[in-house]
Design a protein around this nucleic acid. Structure first.
Length: 765
RNA sequence: GGGUGCUUAGCUCAGCGGUAGAGCGUCGCCCUUACAAGGCGAAUGUCGUAGGUUCGACCCCUACAGCACCCACCA
């Protein structure tokens, strides 16, 4: 064996062999064990969080495979509608054209092209991490089969009355021009103002003061509300104010929603552009005025006329309109005062654009009926969260769940299977022919149909992932064998987006929960506890830890393609300070072992390169122990069929191995990868290397030791070390394979790979 | 407003009702034929604060403080 452990060549060689030999396919004769991968965005690259989760999933998969279970790790990628569309749109921009210029069909073709190119990057990264997914079953959310599942689910939910089309306020992204679900809205407090506006009473006797953070929306006001018990205003309820600028008359109404303590105690009501006001408007039968277009600019033409918006304001962006409205009111002496005020501003999670509540037609899932079964599934422990503290988060959210807006005004995604006839009737069907037949029956003649232009929320197809990847709605053998899956490994950030929805859809369509356990990981943060992000310039590419990267390449990587170019200098400085020598190559096993060792339950992880270095040293320790074991036994008498005499040290190390196996297995059963890692680390280093290897030397070297004693020690060296390799394999697949292929024959074990060897049982020692 | 988690050695984190642990870092001594990507040895903590339960608390309970996160319609 080489004197130094060099992971690079070893890793690539073994992975290629494993894959070629088909070792990743289900082959065990035991009970099924299955995991579906959380499908990464096909146009992204794997980040530290992926590498972390993949390490844990692979450890579980390898462990169960070695146990003889019929093990499937189902891979695949997600089309990630908005994210992907944005990336390709940006590419087109850079080429001096645009999405709308190339048109829908060509744009989609272009995305497919990009998908093919980008998807390769992810699978290459995954292979470098050693993940033992069954590549022959690779799936993509927009594959024909999975798309058919999407359509099937949509049609069935519609038939059941659980999908409907409705006109109501949605979170509208005026930059991306699409509706978003509530979950895609991020509200952060931002500095703003509270404008106190004077609304003259219609009878000319003074005015009311309303406080607002969005003065421009006064153009769409249809009432002013006060609290019913508020003595100051009680007498005014039922009377009217004359709105400035538009001169429209709007009523003063009483509604308990109003907090008399806040501002002036009077609230302007804009049902068309505020979710609360929308509800109040419904309660009081107020008219709803739409004053913004899809770009969030002030409307013109008839819409402007019905709100009596003056020409001078039409077509203005909402923020320009705000200034103009304030200026006009100031001129008229209608601004009482302006206070500084911090308010939550809703932004789109992808575009970061300030969202506008906007009245549109959208498709919704009536979710409460589905949620009920999903709440019970968790309450009854048919789905178990690990750690279980997440159950509360889950059930609280599920109990207050709102209908899910599933339509998106995008091009990249699953087209909604709904067609409209010339009278605007809706025909939901599996395909155009079915829709035509439906229309024919309904109308008694042939009618021309137009398909809905919209696509579905990406998470709609993700929700079906555990069964759509296994062939549903066909009752395939895979579906029968591997559904429900054994465990889902994912981050807490997508419990609502994904986990909850999979449970609902799984129960409704696949007849059972989608997974037994949900292991929730924390976030991988940088060494200061900051979230890793491109804009902060603190991201690490897991492959760079594996292969190493020199400083200049790292700086270039971190500073290219920045959204805020002014961050460049800071990022470069920090990077040069933190990694003056770049990042050395640690090898996959060291990186994986680090992830496992850091995988404590229920908290975020500060990723510390010092730990990787420590575990790289651990790899080296194992390597050198192997050199000793081989040197001490190769070509020497270690025959199992000859008399062996075991020293106290021999018996002791076997007992310690027994102990380590028990600890490791218990840790795995409880998803305590950190404890498994430390159990095997401590046994290897402090017991096997520090003590046993040293104690074996006198026996093997002293002239007066007997042959039986030497044999006993050699047998023990081989038995214990060979088992130790199998124990380590789920966490460190490569180095264990490399050494095992050399040691196993000496230990009298046969096999072409450690991957399919039995996992050590404590009772063997 | 509701909820969750965290606070242990310089740093990153385990831990358990019974005299405080690991990795990294620091200091000292070692190139002894598995291993200098190492070995051996050493130093370092009123385990956030204040109460309580207990024979005994870092561990259980209560309050408080600080930090982080999630959900929510106060204009």
């Amino acid at each position: 064996m080489d004197k130094v452990y060099s992971p690079h060549e070893i890793e690539q060689r073994h992975y290629a062999q494993w894959e070629a030999a088909g070792y990743f396919k289900p082959s065990g004769h035991g009970p099924p064990f299955s995991i579906v991968i959380p499908p990464p965005n096909v146009t992204g690259t794997l980040h530290m969080g992926h590498a972390f989760q993949h390490t844990l999933m692979d450890a579980l998969t390898r462990f169960h495979r070695m146990e003889g279970d019929n093990t499937l790790w189902q891979p695949g990628t997600d089309h990630a509608g908005i994210a992907t569309q944005m990336v390709v749109a940006r590419q087109l921009d850079a080429e001096g054209t645009s999405r709308t210029q190339v048109g829908r069909e060509d744009f989609i073709a272009r995305v497919w092209q990009w998908k093919a190119q980008s998807g390769d990057i992810i699978s290459r990264q995954m292979r470098r991490l050693g993940v033992s997914v069954d590549w022959s079953r690779d799936r993509f959310t927009m594959d024909p089969g999975l798309s058919a599942a999407v359509t099937e689910v949509f049609v069935r939910l519609h038939e059941k009355g659980l999908i409907y089309r409705g006109k109501r306020l949605v979170n509208w992204d005026p930059v991306l021009h699409t509706a978003l679900s509530d979950l895609e809205v991020l509200s952060e407090p931002e500095a703003g103002h509270l404008w106190h506006l004077r609304y003259p009473l219609a009878d000319g006797n003074g005015h009311l003061v309303v406080a607002t953070t969005r003065p421009e929306t006064m153009l769409g006001d249809t009432a002013v509300a006060v609290h019913p018990e508020d003595e100051r205003y009680r007498h005014l309820v039922g009377r009217q104010v004359r709105l400035p600028i538009t001169n429209r008359l709007v009523p003063i109404i009483a509604d308990a929603y109003v907090d008399p303590q806040f501002g002036s105690g009077c609230v302007k009501i804009t049902p068309g552009h505020d979710f609360n006001d929308y509800e109040i408007g419904k309660r009081h039968g107020l008219p709803l005025l739409n004053i913004f277009d899809r770009d969030a600019q002030i409307v013109s033409d008839t819409a402007a006329a019905s709100a009596a918006i003056p020409q001078s304001l039409q077509g203005l962006d909402r923020f320009v309109a705000r200034e103009r409205v304030v200026a006009l009111l100031t001129e008229q002496g209608l601004i009482e005062k302006i206070d500084a005020h911090t308010l939550p501003v809703p932004r789109g999670d992808r575009s970061d654009a300030v969202l506008e509540p906007w009245l549109t037609d959208q498709w919704y899932v009536s979710i409460a009926p589905l949620a009920e079964a999903a709440i019970h599934a968790v309450a009854d422990a048919r789905v178990r969260f690990v750690p279980d503290s997440w159950e509360k988060t889950y059930s609280q959210w599920m109990s207050n769940i709102q209908d899910w807006c599933i339509s998106r005004q995008l091009w990249w995604g699953h087209r909604i299977p709904a067609w409209y006839d010339d009278q605007g009737n809706i025909h939901v069907a599996r395909n155009r022919e079915e829709a035509l037949a439906q229309a024919r029956t309904a109308r008694g003649r042939e009618v021309a149909l137009t398909q809905d232009e919209d696509v579905l929320d990406t998470w709609f197809s993700s929700a079906l992932w555990p069964f759509s990847t296994l062939g549903w709605p066909e009752q395939t053998p895979e579906l029968k064998t591997f559904y429900p899956t054994s465990v889902l490994v994912t981050g807490f950030d997508i419990i609502f987006f994904w986990v909850a929805r999979m449970i609902m859809m799984g129960l409704e369509f696949a007849g059972d929960v989608p997974f037994r356990d949900v292991y929730i990981t924390g976030l991988i943060r940088d060494e200061h506890g900051d979230k890793m992000s491109k804009s902060k310039g603190n991201i690490l590419d897991p492959i760079d830890l594996v292969d190493g990267i020199d400083l200049e390449a790292l700086v270039a990587k971190r500073t290219s393609g920045l959204m805020q170019p002014h961050m460049r200098a800071t990022i470069e400085k920090n990077t040069r300070r933190q990694f003056p020598q770049g990042i050395p190559s640690y090898g996959t096993d060291a990186v994986r072992f680090t992830f496992a060792a850091l995988a404590t339950l229920g908290r975020d992880i500060r990723f510390d390169l010092g730990r990787v270095e420590g575990y790289r040293n651990f790899c080296n320790k194992i390597w050198n122990a192997a050199r000793y074991v081989v040197m001490a036994t190769k070509g020497k008498d270690a025959a199992a069929d000859q008399p062996c005499e075991y020293t106290a040290a021999d018996r002791w190390i076997r007992a310690r191995l027994h102990h380590a196996i028990v600890a490791y297995r218990n840790a795995f059963a409880a998803y305590r990868f950190d404890l498994a890692a430390s159990a095997v680390y401590e046994f290897t280093w402090y017991e096997f290397c520090d003590w046993y290897l040293e104690l074996s030397k006198p026996v093997l070297q002293e002239p007066n030791a007997t042959d039986a004693q030497r044999r006993g020690t050699r047998r023990t060296l081989l038995d214990v070390f060979e088992a130790l390799l199998r124990l380590l394999h789920p966490l460190m697949p490569f180095i264990t394979e490399e050494i095992w292929l050399k040691v196993a024959p000496l230990a009298g074990r046969e096999g072409d790979t450690i991957m399919l060897q039995p996992f050590p049982r404590a009772t063997d020692f």
